[in-house]
Design a protein around this nucleic acid. Structure first.
Lengths: 140, 140
DNA sequence: CTGCATCCTAGATGATACTG
DNA sequence: CAGTATCATCTAGGATGCAG
């Protein structure tokens, strides 16, 4: 009678979308990208402003993050040939659209973080990895 | 006279939302979580099914990923006291809601990956980090 | 001011072997 | 089958110093 139960068929082949999502997550999944984008969503900012607005970020990481974002066309970088140097960063339309997507994720996060925190706390008590233990009801 | 230009004020304080988004990204930002959730979106699957459905994942990573997802209440784990052992994993409602959010991100990714790829390729040619070079119009 | 080069550590991931 | 344990590796990220 029916192969055991409603077991979903394994999808050996991942759709192209999952390839794309991995690329995006590789970009925004790091420690600073989202913060940088979020900060720039307020408008044009220069390097030192960003550095000040993102507490804890090192120059190395800020520079790297901005480079990556610029490379992907999510922000623009404008250097002014002055002394001392001045460089301004700004979100592109593409960057803003990503910001929207991130905002959507943030909404989900805001809506469920307490539930997750609760689950996590509960797991601490019961011990994770135990899960439910069902009795083997399958006749035999 | 207007401080230089329309420079956005640095937001020293990040809203709570960005804290939440970081938590979520810390979870789905890793290499396998999204793939695991995506695979489970098809329905209930057992350990070996997941292992087979996610090419390249090691037992170690699969186990760890599943543990984390279970801990956060995104999936349920049901062990059957049989021999050989059988363990089934399934998305919870919370997990499904996250899947929806991820799907939204995937849509963004699918819609813009080509543009990003194009930008990235273009940057390779011109050299990233150069950005625009504006002339210093500020008198003096 | 705006970076870049270098060194260094912690954590994430992979490979492999072993167990209930 | 469904993990656990251990070791090896790789890389993100932080700290620091130098440069245009």
């Amino acid at each position: 009678m029916a192969s055991a139960r409603q077991i979903a068929g394994p999808c050996q082949e991942w759709p192209e979308d999952s390839v794309f999502i991995r690329e995006v997550l590789d970009r925004i999944g790091d420690k600073w990208t989202v913060l940088a984008i979020g900060t720039l969503s307020a408008g044009t900012l220069r390097y030192s402003d960003l550095h000040a607005s993102i507490p804890g970020i090192s120059q190395r990481m800020l520079t790297q993050t901005l480079k990556h974002l610029e490379r992907d066309g999510l922000i623009t970088r404008t250097a002014y040939a002055e002394v001392p140097p001045r460089v301004e960063y700004e979100l592109t339309d593409l960057g803003r659209s990503l910001m929207d997507a991130v905002t959507a994720m943030a909404r989900w996060a805001a809506a469920h973080h307490s539930e997750i925190a609760r689950n996590r706390a509960a797991s601490e008590l019961t011990g994770v990895g135990r899960g439910k233990v069902a009795v083997s009801a399958s006749a035999d």
